[in-house]
Every structure is written in structure tokens, then in C-alpha cells.
Write a protein that binds this DNA or RNA. Sequence first.
RNA 1: GGCGAGGUAGCUCAGUCGGUUAGAGCACGCGCUUCAUAAGCGCGGUGUCGCCGGUUCAAGUCCGGCCCUCGCUACCA
Length: 685
Amino acid sequence: MSDRILVTSALPYANGHIHLGHLVEYLMTDIWARSQRASGRRCVYVCADDTHGTSIMIRARQERRSELELIAEMSAAHQRDFAAFHIRFDHYGSTHSEANRAACARTWEALRAGGYVRTQEVTQLFDPVEGVFLADRFVQGTCPRCGATQQWGDSCEKCLSTYTPMELVDPVSTLSGAQPVVRSAHHLLVEVERLHGFLDTWVRADGTLQPEIANYLTGFFLSGPLRDWDVSRPAPYFGFEIPDSPGDYWYVWFDAPLGYIGATAEWCERHGESLEDWWRSASTRIVHVIGKDIVYFHTLFWPAMLHVAGWSLPSRVQVHGFLTVNGEKMSKSRGTFVLARTYLEAGLDPTHLRYYYATKLGPRADDLDLDLDDFVARVNADLVGKLVNLASRTARFVTGQALPATYPEDGGLFAEGAAAHDEIVAAYEAFDFARVTRLVMGLADRANEWVARTEPWALAKDPARRDELVAACAVALSVYRQLVVYLSPILPELAGKTAALLGRPIERLAEATEPLVGVTVAPFERLLDRVDAKRVAAMIEASRASLPGSPPPADPPGPARETPAPIDEPVAPTCSIEDFERLDLRVARVTAAAAVAGAKKLVELTLDVGAAGTRTVFAGIKGSYPPERLVGRLVIVVANLAPRAMRFGTSEGMVVAAGPPGKADERQVFLLAPDDGAAPGLRVR
RNA sequence: GGCGAGGUAGCUCAGUCGGUUAGAGCACGCGCUUCAUAAGCGCGGUGUCGCCGGUUCAAGUCCGGCCCUCGCUACCA
């Protein structure tokens, strides 16, 4: 076993506030770190704000203040939210720190020295108004393949084709609305492929990655050559200038993971430790906790960089899934996109969320569902009905009393709990917190049964049986404390209150094997409140209310569909009437419609376009419009769209529909139709 | 299409190395209790363990095939 453990969570981006989805990761890491410490290991938990990149720069400009002011404010907000959920970092830094700059420089020198860096001219779109190069996600335009408008710079959400932003028709900068120009600049790239062999081995190392993650990497990225990684961005860019390449800045994903090292360096500085011991020593285990969205940054580029620069490699990268709420992706329109602060402001207890997440967190990267009804029922039943109840139903009988100096006979109850110690420690180590809570609640059930059989309240009525009463309470309170000790990494606040009630601190999981003797019981105070379902409802309402308002449209007829979230979609740049007339839109009648076998969303339509003949058109609308409902209705079709060969056949046009931009939920598509009286073949003008 | 994960009671899930009659919690019903935050205890019912086949003395568990759900990824207007 290593002398030291360093554990990290991914660095939250300084462009947004912490929400319940973020908290999965930080709570998971905090619980693990606390459990390691409670097992007697030295474990340091560091994190930091991720502060660089174009988004921060642009946002600061829009808010007419400096980036430094913006990131300072966000860092304070993040740390306040984390602290409120009892997430305790040993150090919380920032990627915009001198320590991180030094870590970047040191790593960069090693990459240079190893000959891994090459220069290449990269042609990109450039926003002449803002004066910045535009990443794919800052450009919108018309898809060069299918003509869909307002598509992002890298791929079309409609036809799912991929391309470069330069290929977009009528591109627009989403930053300024200006038309971008093509401009080239030199970039610095890291030749990751040269480390392919190393990565193959590292990814497969036992215990480093969850098997399904290793398998995914091996089969997906490592099955072919790795592309060179572009790690520089030309000025202006909010970040660190590359020392040996003036005017170039490290890409945010280069310096962000190095923030782990930078933050550790700051912690070392403050505590008289040596960074070499923590990041260049085999006696430190490094554990990263991340979400499944950033797996490849942490399992390909990151180990490659560390390897070249002689830093320690993570001994474990623990990947978790995403949070869903009531079984669905978090949604602003449903009010399930809940900020950490909103949860707190609704008067809900962070302890409850910590417990609920723990009951759902296992060692695998599965998504975790916050079912709000289940949340209320589970927390109230487990924490209040079972656990805290053990104390509240007995402590009052012995207020101010000293418990016996020797532990009374309990029929093996305490010993049974003590026997679970090793299993519980192992479950914590494996990030299997669901197992921890299951085991502990099983023990709590048995303890409540014991109390019911022993009937301390009956003993209390007979002064002659005073000793028996005290003994019974000593058992119940010992077992109560035992279970709280086991849960203390998950429920630190309850552990603290329990320590005060029973006059003994809770620090180690091993204390669960020692019964409570000789202590004086303090006056009972409420240890935990129940979850109030009304507050949960208020939280959802508040989350919904914080949206830019817009009354939801009435549900159109048809299958169950979703009211689209109000989307702030910018209006496309001005076009002339001539531009418009290039599009030949015609009324058409659907004469046949069939779902396309093998496609998720496609419906194959046969259209009568009057004099323009009959067309076969594929439309991705199955989620909103089952084929049988389409036959006979009128639609609008782009009649002069270039035919498009698809796997399922050739599409001779496109049916026009309204819908949100981006990754459209297929239930959010609305076909356009002419009023009654229009005939197939009529042109729209 | 590829990869991954799943399908066990109304709901959420556990189920070790194949081994007795398949379990827990929630919910529900009845009874008890009234110490406790409308808490607790006892009793009770439902299961084609997704489907089909195979291995075996024995399959929820192992093997093969299939169906369905979810996630990631690709193709596709």
C-alpha cells in the first residue's frame, strides 16, 4: 500500500455555476477521500477552477470586465457551493496560477526536448469584429451537404455529416454575428501517435481503468493511429503564452489537467511538502475522478504528457456517469436543471443529497438517476426512520447519564455490526457506496428489531429496572454510533452531531468495532430533519422560473411530444429577396409514408408535388410523426434541393419543419403545412 | 452498424464459487406497540428471474442464439 494518496476531481469550468450534475463527481470524490482518511491513510484531495479559453475571454468582454475579475468571482462561487455540500478540499486552486504556469512550462520543455512538438499551418475561420479565431462551436451556418441552416461548425445535426467550418455555407460568428473570414496561423501539435505503444499498455493495466472504459479506448481510439493533438492557440487567447513561441497560447485542455499538478504544488508550498514526493514518486497513488464525457482527455493525452515529462501516472481513473433527474436528462424547461445554490435556497439539506447519491453510486460508469419521489421516500425511511431513530428513541432515557463502563450483553448485535467493518472498508475503496449504504441499513433494521424486543420504554416505567434500561440504551446508542461511524464519510455532519451527543469524536472507521462505554450522554437534540416534499417541489419551480421566460405553446396534436425549451437562437444574417428565391418551396401531399428499417428517425415519404411530379424524400421526423399519421397531409418541400444519396436511398428534396438548433430532441420537430385549399405543386413565395 | 451496460415482486434494487423453498427496502393490507421526527415491530400476497435452446445430479447464476431498454460512437435529410 502506498504511503500517500492524491485524489482529484475534474476542474469545473469558470464559465458556469455548480449544478446537481457536477455534485455527483465532487461528492463521490469527497466521500472517497474521507473514507481513505478514515481508514487511516494519508489522502490529499485537490481541485481547482479551470479558467482559460475563448469562452471566458468572450464572456468577460461581454460583461465589460477583466477575465481576472470574472474568474475570481466564479471561483468564490464554486468554493462556496462546494463547502455548503460539505465537500472538503485540501486545496482549491486555479489553472490561472503561477504554480500551474510552472507545471505547464516544465511539461512543455519535456515535450520539446523529446521532439514531440511540430508546427503546422492551420486554416480557421476568424471573427474580424471580435478579432479571434473561431472554434467550431462558435460558428453557425448552412450545412454544405443538406442545406440545413444554423448548424454548428463541425457537423450538421440534421444530416449528421461532418465537415470543417470552412465548408459551411454563409457562416456566422456566434460571438459577434459577423461573417467570418478564412485566415491561417501556425499551430503547435503534439505527435501522440509516437506514444501509442505506451498508451496501449497503460490503458490495459489492471485496476487503472474500469474494464468497459479500457475496452472502449482500445477498440475505438487505439485501434488506429492517434491524430496529432493541437495544443496551441494564436493570440488573443485567455491563457498562458507559450514561452518559446511568443504569440501562441496553450490550449485550455493542455493546461487544465496540469492544474492538478499546479494545485498540488500550491498545497505543497503551504504545507512544507515536496512536489517531487507527490508527483514524481512511486510511493504516491494518484487517483482521478472524472465524468465519462472527458475520458479521452484523461486517458490518452494526459498520460502521454505525464509520461514524457516524467510525472507520475495516475494509478486509477475512476469514471462516473451523468446525472438524470426523474429518469431523463436534466432539462431547463422541466425545471430539473438545478443549481447547487437553488437546492440550498429551497431549504433542502445537503446531507440528504449526499446520502441519496451514495445509495446510487457504484463502481461503474452508469448514469445516476435522481428520482425526486424516491429521494424523499428513501432519505426519510433510511436516515430518519431507521438510523437516527435508534438514537432518538433511546437517548432521552439516559440524558446526562454515564453509560456503563463495560458493554452489556446484546445477543451479538454489536459484534455482527463490527464484523462488517472489512467489507465496508473494501466497498468504500471500490467506490461502491451503494453497497456501503445497503450493508449499514441492513444492520439498522436488525438494531431496531432488537430495541423493539427489549422495550426500553417498558423498563423506564419501573425504577427497579433502571440498570436494565441504561444497559439497553447503551446497546442501542453503541450500535447507532457504530452505523454513523460507517457512514461518516458520507454524512460528516451527522457524525459531528453524533460525536457531540455521545461525547466521543468520530475519526476512524475502525471505531465501529469498539462499543461505546463510560461516556455521558448529552441532552438529545434533533440530529436530522426529514425531507420536505414541498421544498423539493419549490426547488423545481425555482429552477424553472430562473429561465428566460416564454409561455409554452399549446401541445400540437400528435404523439406525446415535448414542449421545446425556449431557445435563444440568433437570427441569421440578412439575405436578399434574390437569395430567398433561389429556394423553390412547394406544397406537396404525402401519398405514402413508411419508417425506414435500420434508421432511428427516418421516415421515407412519397410526395405528390403536382406538376413537379412525384418525389421520394427522407425526413428525420419519426419521433414526432408516426408514418401512418402523415399519409394524406400537406407539407412544404424544398423542391430544388440537390438530390442526396443516403444509405437507404436517394432523397429528392427536403420537408420543412421548425425545431430547435443543436442536438434536437426528435420530439421537438414541427412540420409546416399550408392552410386548407392549397394544392400540391403550388410554390411558396 | 460498432462498442458498452442492463432486463429479478407494483416501484427501486440485492443475489458470492452453479447448491435447499429466489431476497431486502419502498408501497399495499391486517395486527401489535406508542420510546422515537405520523417513527418501530410482526404477519401477508403476487415473481414464466426478458425469450429460446444447451451444459449439469442441480442454472437467476455458466455457454450459444434471439428480443427489448439505456449510454457512447458512426452512417444517414
